[in-house]
Computed example of a mutant assay.
Amino acid sequence: MKREISNSKGVCFGEILWDNLPTGRKLGGAPLNVAYHLNKLGIHTDMLTRVGRDADGEDIIRLCAELAIPLTLFQKDSKYPTSTVEVDIDENKDVRYEIVFPVAWDYIALGEKEIETVNKADFFVFGSLSTRHHASYQTLQMLIKVANYKVFDLNLRAPHYTKERIFELLGYADLVKMNEEELGFVAAWMGLSDADTDTAKAEAVMTTFNINELIITYGAKGAIYHSWLGKFSYHFPALKVEVKDTIGSGDSFLAAFLSQRCRQDHQKTPEEMLEFATTLSAFVTQSTGACPSYDEVTINRFVWLNSLDNTKY
């Protein structure tokens, strides 16, 4: 990993919260995690969100400042509290979430500053969870109209989604990221057969919703990048690591991919984009929490150690 300051800029929209883990409280929220990693990777990325005027909110703002996450688009709510999530991790390292409703980020407001920032950004990242309430969803719909490159991270969290809302969001996106299970949900809603291959399902999704790029993540089996722009499907295997938890691994994957996909100096190959994305995702998976501390030396050492572990003599 070589950290380079990029001319690209992004905006992430949606939830920011405290994940109450068995090991303690951790900063979380899928779009916040993406923003954290993008800023770590040298791409200025604003986080458009809302916290309560409470101790939890002040703690989030203080920590985000320490993590160098821009605070320009943070909003404060006097009525609704800062979001918290109860997290349970089972013996298989699978994660379950209990997300409180309603909270401050259900009421993200729209203003000239928000519109101007999104319009000037190279990409705009949003998920499905932050659309569970009509207030934030109306704001998102207006921002999508002025966004240049729209990135939709499915991130399904029951019961906070509907088929109709997911279909609407898919119709807005230029790039979509989902995992294997989420692809199954969307395919079933579309009436596709279980016998269809994942490639056939992906092509059907892209055709139906006019999506140019689709990433399907498969955990330990890697990821596939489908592109109509390049007319290809490219599979890249995951690195083998000892899993501590999977919180935020998909978010770090998306951030790393975007850091390569949206470069303005030169075009990266699919292999380069996916290699970097799977590397950062693997590092996060073998770390605790979604936003572990790291730098260029840390990631380079991780890659070196992983290559030693996988060397066959």
Rank of each mutant, 00 (worst) to 15 (best):
L48V: 04
S78G: 11
Q267I: 12
F253Q: 13
A195Y: 03
M178D: 13
A255K: 12
S249Q: 13
Y234Q: 04
I43S: 02
E271N: 09
V284W: 08
C12V: 08
N155G: 02
A121C: 02
S130M: 07
S259R: 11
V151N: 01
R157M: 01
D90M: 04
A220R: 12
H133R: 14
A187I: 09
A223Q: 12
K26T: 12
K93D: 11
E114S: 09
K221M: 06
L239T: 03
S233M: 14
R50E: 14
V100G: 13
I211P: 10
Y97M: 03
I216W: 07
P31W: 11
S8N: 00
C291S: 15
V297K: 15
R25C: 04
F302R: 03
G184K: 14
E66D: 06
G250D: 02
W18F: 09
V34M: 06
E112A: 04
V205Y: 04
I299H: 07
Y149F: 10
L41R: 08
L258H: 05
V34A: 12
V146I: 00
T208D: 10
I60E: 04
V241G: 12
D122G: 01
A147R: 10
S78P: 14
F126K: 14
T311I: 00
R3S: 12
D59E: 15
F101C: 01
Q267L: 06
L239F: 09
A104E: 04
D194A: 12
S130V: 09
T84V: 13
R25A: 07
A158L: 03
E86M: 04
G184S: 15
S193A: 14
R132E: 06
H44I: 06
R50D: 02
L143K: 00
E180P: 00
A195K: 13
A135H: 09
Y225E: 09
V243G: 08
T23G: 05
N39K: 02
K244F: 02
C12Q: 05
L254T: 00
K177M: 11
H133A: 05
V118R: 01
V103E: 03
D19V: 05
N39T: 01
E15Q: 07
N7A: 11
L67K: 12
T139H: 01
W304C: 02
F167H: 12
D309H: 02
L214G: 07
E58T: 14
E66S: 15
G250T: 11
